[in-house]
Design a protein around this nucleic acid. Sequence first.
DNA 1: CCAAAAGTGTTGGTTTTACACCCATGG
DNA 2: CCATGGGTGTAAAACCAACACTTTTGG
Lengths: 229, 229
Amino acid sequence: MKTKKHNPKPEKPSIAVDIIIFVINDNELKILLIKRGSKTFKGRWALPGGRVDKDEALKDAAARELEEETGLKNIYLEQLYTFGAPFRDPRGRVISIAYFALINQKPKLFPATDAADAQWFVVKKLPRLAFDHEIIISTAVERLRWKLEYTNIVANFLPKYFTLSELQDVYEIILGKKIDKRNFRKKLLSLNLIQSTRKKKQGVTYRPPQLWRFVTSKHIILNKRDLVF
Amino acid sequence: MKTKKHNPKPEKPSIAVDIIIFVINDNELKILLIKRGSKTFKGRWALPGGRVDKDEALKDAAARELEEETGLKNIYLEQLYTFGAPFRDPRGRVISIAYFALINQKPKLFPATDAADAQWFVVKKLPRLAFDHEIIISTAVERLRWKLEYTNIVANFLPKYFTLSELQDVYEIILGKKIDKRNFRKKLLSLNLIQSTRKKKQGVTYRPPQLWRFVTSKHIILNKRDLVF
DNA sequence: CCAAAAGTGTTGGTTTTACACCCATGG
DNA sequence: CCATGGGTGTAAAACCAACACTTTTGG
């Protein structure tokens, strides 16, 4: 084989970021979707996202879009994957770098001006989506499940203080299966990711559970074998 | 917080793909680097890569660049990460989608016309590199190690028929540690990824080892606990 | 018969899984 | 005293880590 000089048509596609914002609410894993107001895919639901500014880092663009929709700053954000199929956007080529964010409560929403509406959807019951957003979302869910098992990423879904049952609930909701309570506690405690505060949850009508917190808010990658339920 | 309509300067950066081509050779993990002939970073070594054509899928662009440099087709290619820091390229904004490729032997090289040279480098002893390519490479090595432990990706480094020692060598080289031979065999055989051919390797001056092959060339994701040495 | 690498099992320790009852509180 | 979820231990099975000698071939 001889090298053919490759020359044709280098193009300048548009660059966008799309964000999957995950939250746990009402015992469900949910994501935020925006109802499209502009003509392409008008009325369909889509991931929040937008253009990357000049001299703006990709992650900063994602953080900005996140803040514009939710008002939240300093949120866990991770680059997911880059979607660049030639005709994924009917208006012309758009390469989208997808990020996902984890938040610990539903914020008030500030739907961007080109959106007709914004709503939280249970991940297992999504409406029809615009573009290739189904694939982006399922990639994100897969990654989330995966990282739940070998990082301390779960911390981002919880308030500063939480009970072991609340923590277990998050695992069960995302992994989609029941975990034995004793085994769950044994394992989590053995990892030294969380520590007991000496406080108890107030105002419950049953035996008050202890409150725990994560030892660190840094992202920790566990030993591969560690967190498999 | 009120939604500020976000409008300023959406730009059209250039899009490129960069490829980390891994091979195992002389008991070392190596990658292909290109010596830059054009003025920016002239003389420095860099990853092979190039522009994405109009209507060309990102992975196809990576595959094309790979073929242009090596003549190889139908190679395992996986999207690694997207690097888009605003000033990573001094000529202007370039967003690079990095892919990595695994090949099972050094091919003849066809250095592209804008390259002064192309060479294989041991990953642990790289020269100074252009752009942010150190970070791209270390991200790739990390991913490779990780995937070695929970997929059958290792198959791509081996010829169709191979011995168990050759397979073990690949693991040891990439993971950078010795593995006990008996435990290695026990575990690998229990996974049913490989099967014995009834043949033996010819022309060796010692007890001829059995030849094995992978049951499938499809990418398989193992049970998380499975392949940890 | 020598050199070289191939091939092969056992044991002890650790981890995982499965499983059920009593406790502390508020009403 | 009832309802509610909180909190706790044990035993069997599976898995992992450490370890050394015999075999087959070519020269």
